[in-house]
Every structure is written in C-alpha cells, then in structure tokens.
C-alpha cells in the first residue's frame, strides 16, 4: 500500500483491469513469421521506419539510398537542442550502419539523428537527447551502435528504453567492443548485439548467456563510407545494424508484432536455436 500524497496517474496508464473484462481489451495480433529454411526472415522492410542514432548519414550514398529525415543534436548555452540538418556524416560510422540496414531491409525508410561530430563536452547529454528524440518520433526501429559508461545517465536511459519498449519502438543496441560496462545494451528492454566471426553475412545467433542477446556478422564487414566509397571494418557497431535490418524485415511482414514477439522471432530464427531438436 502507499501512503501520503501521490501525483495522479498519467492518463491512459493502467494498474489493473477494473470494471472491464476480456471482451473490453481485444488485441488484433500478428503471428511471428515461420523461421526460414534458408535466407533472410520476413519482408523487405517496406513501410518500416528505421532511425540511425550515430554520427549522421551521408546523403545519396549508393549503398544507403534515400535518407528520409536528418536531425542533429547540439548543445549551446541554453541547453541541448535538436534541429533538421543537411550536414551529412562527420566520420563515416553512421553511414556504415545505414548501409548495412539498407542491404538487409532494402525498402525500409531510413532517417538519421546525429549525436556525434559536434563538440565533445556534454556528449552524454547529446546522446540521451538523440535517443529521446528518436523514441518520441515513434520510429519502429532505432539503431544504436553506441553506448555510454557514465552512471549518471543510466536511469534516464532505462526510462527511455522502457518508454520505447511499451510504445513498440525497438531499440537495437551494440554491446561495447571491450569489457566495459556501458548502456543501454545491458537492458532487457532493448535488443543487444555483439559480433560473431563467421563469414556468412546473413547469419545471426542467439547467445544462451546474455546480456548480449544476439550475435551477427561483425568481422571484416564491407560498409559504406564517406564520399560514396566503401571500406572494410570490424566491430559490434556493424553487427548491430544487421539485426536492426532483420527487425525491419520482420516488421514489414508482420507490422503488429510487439518488441517481445520480435525478439522471439529473432530467437527462433537464430541458426543455433533448435526447437524440440527440429533444426
């Protein structure tokens, strides 16, 4: 029980089912797609809105294609702000992530929130604001190949990750590349991704020992880079957008899937998961 004055619950928030029955809360749902025999799962990403929160995305890169909207987060004396931008990418990393998503889910709608490439000071605030912006824009999938190790951001990040989860925005987050405790990939409300070393560019695996829940191709990955070029690179940063792309594919064939259903679809389609020994 609670004592003392509490603020009134926010409208729409439900603590229990009172005065209503099952017929009052119908749910029209989708069943997850059957795991494929081979190849990729789901559709082409059509109709799914994906946002890359990173260093920006280069416009008109042949491996990225159209970028629907681009914003940048910046800080000045008045605080942290978000505005539309046509600045592109400061380093190539965001463009690389966008290219992997495009390859995996060619028909998805891609947007960018740039949180790196400005001044360093306050970059934690900027990351947080970038994620908040992407969540509040209600993207279906948010790719986050970044994390923070600063404790003071953890609670707010957790709140944002939960907000995303309950509004059906899936945050796909990179595990740190070194043995560093960082966030938000550690949260169960996001889909966390690390690298495997296999050559198969379409292989994803479930980790039976989370918190990193999935492994995807992250070694010597050919990625889009600045100036319309490509390079090879390695790291969890590049495994993550593959899983973000998979999420877009699955959602395009089953748009009503909840984040937990989506995670289950990834789990069931992982090459190392055998259901009743069937695979």
């Amino acid at each position: 029980m609670t004592t003392g004055q509490r603020p009134a619950p926010a409208p729409g928030l439900t603590w229990g089912l009172r005065g209503r029955g099952p017929a009052d809360v119908p749910v029209e749902a989708d069943h997850p797609p059957e795991p494929p025999e081979g190849g990729l799962l789901g559709g082409t990403g059509r109709g799914v809105r994906v946002c890359v929160v990173d260093s920006g995305v280069e416009r008109d890169h042949p491996m990225v294609g159209p970028v629907a909207q681009s914003w940048r987060v910046f800080k000045d004396d008045d605080g942290v702000h978000v505005e539309e931008t046509d600045e592109g990418d400061a380093c190539g990393h965001g463009t690389a992530c966008a290219g992997i998503i495009r390859r995996t889910a060619p028909d998805c709608e891609l947007s960018s929130v740039r949180v790196l490439g400005e001044r360093f000071s306050g970059s934690g605030d900027i990351l947080l604001e970038g994620i908040r912006w992407a969540v509040r824009q209600r993207f279906d999938v948010v790719n986050l190949s970044l994390s923070t190790s600063r404790d003071r951001f953890v609670e707010e990040l957790r709140r944002l990750a939960d907000e995303a989860y309950f509004q059906q925005t899936v945050i796909v987050a990179s595990a740190h590349n070194t043995h560093v405790e960082s966030f938000p990939w550690r949260f169960s409300s996001v889909i966390s991704v690390g690298s495997h070393q296999e050559d198969d560019p379409d292989l994803h695996l479930y980790n039976p020992e989370p918190p990193v829940e999935f492994f995807a191709p992250g070694q010597r990955v050919q990625v889009a880079w600045l100036g319309g070029t490509s390079i090879r690179t390695s790291g969890n940063s590049f495994a993550t957008p593959f899983v973000a792309g998979l999420c877009a594919r699955i959602l395009s064939s089953r748009p009503r899937l909840t984040p937990f259903q989506l995670k289950n679809a990834l789990y069931l389609s992982a090459a190392n998961v055998r259901v009743h020994g069937s695979r």
């Binding site: 260093s55 400061a90 380093c91 190539g92 990393h93 790196l116 490439g117 360093f120 970059s123 970044l146 190790s149 740190h176 590349n177 070194t178 560093v180 960082s182 010597r220 880079w225 600045l226 100036g227 070029t229 490509s230 390079i231 090879r232 690179t233 390695s234 790291g235 940063s237």
Partner: peptide, 19 residues
C-alpha cells in the same frame, strides 16, 4: 569517433576512400 564513442575501430581498404 573513437574519442567520442570510447570504442576502438579498425578499418581497411581506405585507398579508394576520399574520407
């Protein structure tokens, strides 16, 4: 990017990159 992200990075095939 490495300084801002706190993450390591390796890249290859930079020769044809203008980047």
């Amino acid at each position: 990017w490495v300084a801002a992200s706190g993450e390591p990075m390796v890249v290859d095939d930079l020769h044809d990159s203008t980047s």
